Computed example of a mutant assay.
Amino acid sequence: MSIAFTFPGQGSQAVGMGRDLAEAFPEARAVFQEVDEALNQPLSKLMWEGPEDELTLTANAQPALMAVSLAAIRVMEKEGFRLQDKVAYVAGHSLGEYSALAAAGTFSLSDTARLLRIRGNAMQAAVPVGEGAMAAIIGLEAADVEEVCASAAKGAICQIANDNGGGQLVISGARSAVEEAARLASERGAKRAIMLPVSAPFHSALMGPAAERMREALAEVQKNAPAVPVIANVTVSPLTDPEEIAARLVEQVTGRVRWRETVEWFGGNGVHTLYEVGSGKVLTGLARRINRDLNAVAVNTPADIEAVLKAL
Score class of each variant (00 low, 15 high):
Ile3Leu: 14
Gln10Tyr: 04
Ala14Gly: 06
Val15Trp: 11
Met17Trp: 08
Phe25Lys: 03
Ala28Lys: 10
Arg29Trp: 05
Pro42Gly: 08
Leu43His: 12
Lys45Gly: 13
Thr56Asn: 11
Leu57Gln: 15
Thr58Leu: 00
Ala59Thr: 12
Pro63Trp: 10
Leu65Val: 10
Ala72Thr: 09
Glu79Ala: 13
Phe81Glu: 03
Arg82Leu: 03
Ser94Leu: 04
Tyr98Asn: 08
Leu101Trp: 05
Asp111His: 09
Gly120Gln: 02
Val127Asp: 00
Val129Ala: 15
Gly130Trp: 01
Glu131His: 08
Gly155His: 08
Ala156Pro: 01
Ile157Pro: 05
Cys158Asp: 02
Ala161Tyr: 00
Gly166His: 06
Ser172Tyr: 00
Ala177Tyr: 00
Ser186Asn: 05
Ala200Glu: 03
Ser204Met: 05
Ala205Gly: 10
Met207Glu: 01
Pro209Trp: 02
Ala210Gln: 09
Glu212Leu: 13
Arg215His: 12
Asn224Trp: 05
Asp241Leu: 04
Gly255Glu: 02
Trp259His: 11
Glu261Met: 08
Glu264Leu: 13
Asn269Arg: 09
Gly278Met: 06
Lys281Leu: 09
Lys281Trp: 04
Val282Tyr: 01
Thr284Met: 06
Asn291Tyr: 08
Asn291Phe: 07
Asn300Ser: 15
Pro302Ile: 11
Ile305Leu: 15
Leu309Cys: 02
